[in-house]
């Protein structure tokens, strides 16, 4: 399993209610059910992936998080998870607010556009960066709102949510992000993982 998923599973307490937004093929949901005995629900935009989830016995609804989170009441989940998709939404601000409304706690992971490889790529080649975690060309990428770890931390102050835990994933190593190391983590981490609350 991806290190990212292991970290998320660790962050989630046992026997809670979890909504996985953009649950893909249900790998994370399965792991959460198995390891943390959670009541897991998923929402996924791809028909094929919803069908894969159904074949695994997972409770998933086909839908678009940008519009379909409305149906869930306030605080209806202990955790809402959004893995590496914030950057793909037309309006990430609205989506974050919806996640915070629906979940008591929200876990968001973001591919870090501040990573040195990305920066170097643009600096040297002068073209839009293509890396392992960002494999698409500018014209066919689903990622329309890329941000850096630093951007996300700034964003928390702008739309006023609390970051309870921020972790950096660098070469499969996990470390804490704090004010004093933010510059370095923003330069070296591939992925930022945040546990946030409204």
């Amino acid at each position: 399993m991806k290190t990212e998923y292991k970290i998320i599973v660790d962050l989630i307490e046992e026997k809670t209610r979890v909504l996985d937004v953009g649950c893909d093929d249900g790998t994370l949901m399965e792991s959460l059910k198995k390891n943390k005995n959670v009541d897991a629900r998923g929402i996924e935009i791809s028909k094929d992936k919803v069908q894969t989830c159904v074949s695994k016995g997972l409770t998933v609804i086909e839908g678009n998080a940008e519009f379909d989170l409305k149906q869930f009441p306030n605080d209806s989940f202990d955790y809402v998870v959004l893995g590496q998709t914030l950057q793909a939404f037309v309006n990430p601000e609205v989506v974050i607010k919806e996640l915070l409304r629906v979940g008591k706690k929200t876990i968001i992971t973001i591919p870090n556009f501040g990573n040195w490889k990305v920066r170097l790529n643009l600096l040297i080649k002068g073209t839009m960066p293509i890396t392992k975690s960002l494999p698409n060309d500018w014209y066919n990428t689903p990622n329309i709102h890329m941000c850096t770890i630093k951007d996300f931390v700034k964003f928390s102050k702008i739309i006023n949510f609390k970051i309870f835990k921020s972790l950096a994933l660098t070469n499969r190593n996990i470390s804490n992000i704090n004010n004093s190391n933010l510059f370095y983590k923003n330069l070296f981490a591939e992925l930022g993982i945040f546990l946030i609350e409204k």
Binding site: R17, K47, V50, Q51, C53, V54, L58, T59, V60, I61, E62, G63, Q71, F72, P73, S76
Partner: peptide, 11 residues
């Protein structure tokens, strides 16, 4: 979903 029922959906 509004009452937290166990519901899956596919089109």
């Amino acid at each position: 979903n509004a009452i937290g029922a166990d519901v899956g959906f596919v089109e």
